[in-house]
Write a protein that binds this DNA or RNA. Structure first.
Length: 275
DNA sequence: GTACAGGTTCCGT
DNA sequence: ACGGAACCTGTA
């Protein structure tokens, strides 16, 4: 078992339930159980508030990076506190951390998120993994790894039909081929500018502006990216009286390098918590 | 039955 | 370039 000492600005619940990831579930005792890539794990706090990780992979560096433990969220909240709305939202969601998730998994997950709702997104991803991912035994239970691009690239639309992804199934196959052929990879994209990276990702059908932004933020550590969806567009419109057309420029200018966490604070506060 | 869901593509002007 | 319908499926 790994453990990380108690941290300010860290909440398993807020981090896993703020909509950035889809494979973690809260148990009755408050622990979170799920899979990241091919690593099954259980995360919880001990009596001192330290974060404990039991996993098929007990590599401290992996989990420390995945959970983004080195980023100073207090500083982010301080920067954003000039804005009364963000002050309120960040205080409420101060335990949110932006995970660093694997590129291929993030890409497919957010392709599936298009014009969809979270319960169904989770269902589709789970059946995708159950059908095509390797089985993992952990904590006396069965889990499934996220399937590799090479494996998915060989599938047909009818193979994919059982996961009920609907019109998104063809996008998943196309993405798999691009990753399997190496046309798109973390190695290639990580050194690109935000704009280059975004344009590269948008070569995949099913990846538009918002999905690409989610990938930049949740996988490529581009913390300045503020993904604009129906919720955050409406929130920004209501709070600041900005017209739809001016919103992208407005958030970029206002939240600067902290756009990503600003978006998460606002989304969590207005779309999830207050529901 | 019908509307809607953390959007994107496709097809009209 | 820009605006609006169509899109799979599940749920209310």
């Amino acid at each position: 078992m790994l453990s990380f000492e108690k941290k300010d600005c860290f909440s398993l619940e807020q981090t896993f339930l703020c909509g950035q990831c889809f494979r973690w579930n809260m148990e009755e005792n408050g622990a979170f159980v799920g899979v990241a890539g091919d690593k099954a794990a259980k995360l919880y706090y001990d009596s001192n508030g330290a974060v404990c990780v039991e996993s098929t992979c007990e590599d401290e560096k992996f989990w420390s990076e995945y959970l983004n433990l080195s980023f100073d969220y207090k500083k982010a909240a301080e920067f954003l506190s000039f804005d009364e709305n963000l002050k309120k939202a960040s205080n409420s969601g101060k335990g949110i951390r932006i995970l660093k998730q694997e590129l291929w998994e993030t890409t497919v997950s957010f392709i599936i998120s298009a014009n969809n709702n979270i319960p169904r997104i989770k269902k589709i991803i789970e059946s995708f993994c159950e059908l095509f991912g390797d089985e993992i035994i952990f904590d006396k239970r069965k889990f499934f790894a996220f399937p590799e691009p090479k494996k998915v690239a060989q599938l047909s639309l009818s193979d994919l039909a059982p996961i009920k992804a609907g019109f998104r199934d063809k996008y998943i196959l196309e993405a798999a081929k691009k990753f399997a052929e190496g046309k798109i990879s973390f190695e290639k994209i990580k050194t690109m500018s935000d704009l280059e990276a975004k344009n590269t990702l948008m070569q995949i059908k099913g990846v538009g502006s918002k999905v690409a932004d989610c990938i930049l933020l949740f996988s490529l550590e581009r913390g300045g990216i503020f993904p604009l969806d129906v919720w955050t567009k409406r929130i920004i419109g209501d709070l600041y009286g900005v017209g739809e057309k001016d919103i992208p420029q407005f958030v970029a200018q206002r939240f600067k390098n902290y756009g990503g966490i600003a978006q998460q604070y606002l989304y969590y506060y207005y779309a999830i918590q207050k529901k």
